[in-house]
Design a protein around this nucleic acid. Sequence first.
DNA 1: CAAGTTACCTGACGGC
DNA 2: TGCCGTCAGGTAACTT
Length: 277
Amino acid sequence: MPELPEVEVICQGLRPHLVGRIVTAVHGSGKPLRHLVPLAVMEKMLGGGRVKAVSRRAKYLLIGFEDETLLIIHLGMTGNVGLFPHTAPVKVHDHVRWQLENGYELRLHDSRRFGGIWLLTAEQAAERETGFFAATGVEPFSLHCTPAHLMELAAKRNQPVKTFLMDGKAVAGIGNIYANEALFAAGIHPARAASTLKKRDWQQLLFLLRSILSQAICCGGSTISDFINASGGRGYFQMNFQVYGRKGQPCPQCGAAIEKIAITGRATYFCPLCQKE
DNA sequence: CAAGTTACCTGACGGC
DNA sequence: TGCCGTCAGGTAACTT
C-alpha cells in the first residue's frame, strides 16, 4: 500500500492526536509480522511513556517518546494505522493495539502481515542514521538529494532507472506507483540503464518526482484497494495517475496506448512514444 | 558481487 | 455459485 506520500499523510494525520498521549498497555493478535517486538517487551518499554513526536523516514513511521525511546512502524503492502475508541470492535488483522490514557488506542491493521515493528532505545534512536537506517537512502526532499548525488550513485550500477528509483538504499520512499509516474512525467523509458542518464535528465527527473510526491501528499495519498489515512479516509491521487494501472488506455500526452511490461518482476507502465529508450 | 528471483501472507478479481 | 490461477502499494533472503 504505502509509499512515501501515504506514510506522510498518515504521519500528519496522526501527529495532532498522538503527541502528548500516554501509552498504558499494548495488546495484539499474536500473529507474526515481518518483524515484531514481543508485546510484553513493548509494553514494558513504552508503558507510561508519553508521545513526544510523530515523523517519517523513508516508508517508516516514527513515534518518539519523551524518554527518547523510538517506536518504528512499517506498513508493508497492506498496513494501516489509525486511532479508535478502545471500545470499538477489534477487526480481523488488527495485529497490534497501543492503548492510550484518553480512551483511544492506536491500531495496526495489516492483512498480509508484510509490515514490521521495531523499538529503539534512546541510545539506538540517537544513532539511528548510522544504525537502524544505515542502509536507507537519501530522502527525496532533503538538501542532500541532488541531481549530482543521484547521478553519482547511478553511475556505479547497471540497472534500469526504474529499479534504481525503487531501491530504498539509493533514494528512500519511492515505490512502484511513483517510480512509474515520475518516469512518465520526465519522458524517460523505465528500462533505460540508470547509468546513461545525463545531468539534465536527473535534474528533470528529480524535479518532477518531487512535484508528483508533493501533489500526492496534498491529495491525501493514493487509494488503490485499501489505503486509508489515520482518520479512515481515502486518498484521491489515483485519479491523477497518468500511466500506473492504465495498460491499453491512451497516453494523456500523445494518445498512444500505454504498455505494461515487467521490470525486475514489477508491473511497469509507460508510453512507448513519450518515453523513448 | 550486482542483479534477478523467490518467499513471506491474504484478498480481490477474471476466466471457466 | 465456486474453484483456480494470477496479481497486488514492500522488503529481505536467496540464487545466479
